[in-house]
Computed example of a mutant assay.
Amino acid sequence: MREQIAPDLYDSWSEEQCAGIEVVDGMVVVRPSASKRHNRLARILANALEVAAGPDWNADTDFDVRLQDVPLTNRRPDVVVYRAETIDITPTRPEHVLLVVEVVSPGSETTDRIVKVEQYATAGIAFYWRVEQAANGVPLVYTYVLDPATRTYRDGDVFTGVVKVAAPFPVEIDLGQI
């Protein structure tokens, strides 16, 4: 029988041990391997968000965000915009995070479209972007904004080709370079 993992045990594992997994309700979930297109898209988004965010925020890829301690739930969003002053604080908590981006891939559709939306909203993360890799090669970006009173996301704008938003900060990202 499998047992739930406690935060202190998980925190003792190396980065290499944690790299390809998430922990949901205390149980290890193996993440599917990302394609080169997926990784490039995440990197382009992270780089553009990093530049636009200014000095108070960092944008990075592929690290844990601890959504809850009991039962342990750690997610690894494809892109995270977080407070620069928390760069050395581990684990990264929802209150450190402004925006998470998930790039939908085969095998992550339900998790990225339904499960993570609810988890990130419940945790209080203000902005969520979901990127769909369209068959024509031009990604679609769905944006969501947290309603703090209900801890649910409201639908924002949908972009194809170029993402141009004013919040959480002004940024324009050309997705045609994929």
Rank of each mutant, 00 (worst) to 15 (best):
A19I: 01
L45A: 12
Q17D: 12
V131T: 00
V165C: 09
E132F: 00
H96P: 11
M1Y: 13
L72W: 14
T152H: 07
G26I: 10
Q177H: 14
V131D: 07
A167V: 08
N58M: 13
E109N: 13
E95L: 10
G156C: 08
V30G: 00
V158A: 06
W57N: 04
E172S: 15
A6P: 01
A46M: 10
V79F: 15
A134D: 10
M1H: 12
G124I: 00
T73F: 05
D157C: 00
N74Q: 14
V115N: 14
S35Y: 07
E172K: 15
S33L: 14
V165R: 00
I173M: 09
Q68Y: 06
G161D: 06
A42D: 03
S105Y: 00
D147E: 06
L41K: 04
A34S: 11
V117W: 04
M27V: 08
G54R: 06
K116R: 13
P55L: 08
V97N: 04
A84D: 00
D8S: 07
D11C: 04
A134P: 01
R40S: 15
T143S: 15
I21P: 04
D64I: 06
E118A: 13
S14D: 02
P55S: 14
P7G: 02
M27F: 15
A48K: 09
D174F: 10
I125N: 00
A121W: 04
W13H: 09
E118V: 13
Q119C: 03
D147K: 00
L140D: 13
T122F: 04
M1F: 15
A121Y: 07
D157E: 15
D11R: 02
V158Q: 02
P77Q: 06
D157H: 07
D11A: 10
Y142M: 10
L45H: 13
R130F: 06
D147V: 00
E95I: 02
Y10S: 01
S12H: 01
P71N: 09
L67R: 05
Q4V: 13
Y120F: 09
A134E: 11
F63Q: 10
W57C: 05
P32E: 11
Y142E: 15
R151Y: 08
V80W: 08
